[in-house]
């Protein structure tokens, strides 16, 4: 495997209300991120749209169903379809989450939390290595948001992530909003989390909105809040120039609104670069 080159740019997720803007290449972004599973189909309009978008933009594939933490191993049918899609669009990279979604019988279609134990670490590393070998490329692993912590935990999430990177050679998709959400829910310092990761392996950053409350929920249905912008600015000083993307999956606003948020990310990233220089 050859590693994943850094790509410094600012992108958005491909969502149905904005198809026309991306198909014609009119959206002023540097790359587009797609939910892999939405395009792991036999044919028809979804692939037609994706081909048209790919003609104008680099595309990052972001998955939700790899289930890298599943004790039942990887799903070969899923990986085969993922590989076919990757061959078709030649993505910047393929990413998924540190989580699990299925048992041998059922699929939650939700990103469920892992216990951070030595056993789970072995499982994640075995599954991720198998996936990377099958795909013939390293992947990006995204830190999750979570709403509970298992009493079985033996290490911090960032320690778990760092060890997965070390053992599998994977890269990181750093979701700054997820760090903020989990920090609120579990009472750790977000900067401690950042400090515990091998930040040189970060290739992409996610930004999103969340719903505040006794338990903060990662909803992706509103603007990025000030606390997350501050954490993003801090992260960019540590990470250096990488791809940044705004994730919006619900209550999707006009494209112009998202471009305003993306401009904020550009400004903060530029300030961080000046600060480091």
């Amino acid at each position: 495997m050859t590693g994943i080159a850094r790509f410094h740019g600012f992108g958005l997720g491909l969502r149905r209300p904005h198809y026309d803007d991306f198909i014609c290449g009119g959206a002023p972004v540097d790359f587009v991120e797609v939910i892999s599973e939405n395009y792991m189909v036999e044919g028809g309009k979804p692939l037609s749209v994706l081909d048209a978008v790919r003609a104008h933009y680099p595309v990052a594939m972001h998955g939700v169903s790899l289930s890298v933490g599943s004790a039942h191993g990887t799903d070969r049918d899923y990986l085969a379809r993922l590989k076919v899609l990757a061959a078709r669009i030649e993505p910047l990279w393929i990413s998924d989450h540190l989580c699990w979604t299925r048992t041998s019988a059922h699929n939650s279609h939700d990103l469920l939390p892992l216990p951070y134990t030595a056993e789970a670490l072995d499982v994640v590393c075995a599954n991720l290595s198998a996936a990377q070998d099958f795909l013939g490329r390293e992947m990006l692993l995204e830190n999750p948001s979570s709403y509970l912590a298992f009493p079985e935990n033996e290490m911090a999430e960032w320690e778990f992530m760092a060890e997965v990177c070390r053992r599998t050679g994977c890269f990181l998709l750093l979701d700054v909003n997820n760090i903020h959400v989990s920090a609120q829910n579990h009472g750790f310092r977000a900067l401690d989390y950042l400090g515990g990761l091998p930040l040189e392996r970060v290739r992409q950053i996610h930004l999103a909105g969340h719903a505040p409350g006794e338990i903060v929920i990662d909803t992706h249905d509103r603007e990025v809040c000030d606390d997350v912008w501050r954490l993003y600015a801090a992260a960019m000083k540590l990470v250096g120039p990488v791809a940044t993307m705004i994730e919006r999956d619900d209550a999707i606003p006009p494209l112009a609104d998202l471009l305003i948020e993306l401009a904020t990310a550009r400004d903060l990233a530029a300030s961080a670069e000046r600060h480091v220089a």
Binding site: S108, H109, D110, L148, A149, E214, I215, I217
Partner: peptide, 13 residues
């Protein structure tokens, strides 16, 4: 606390 978190996952599902 676990129960409260589980409620969120159950409702999300």
């Amino acid at each position: 606390r676990m129960a409260a978190g589980l409620d969120i996952y159950r409702n999300a599902y």
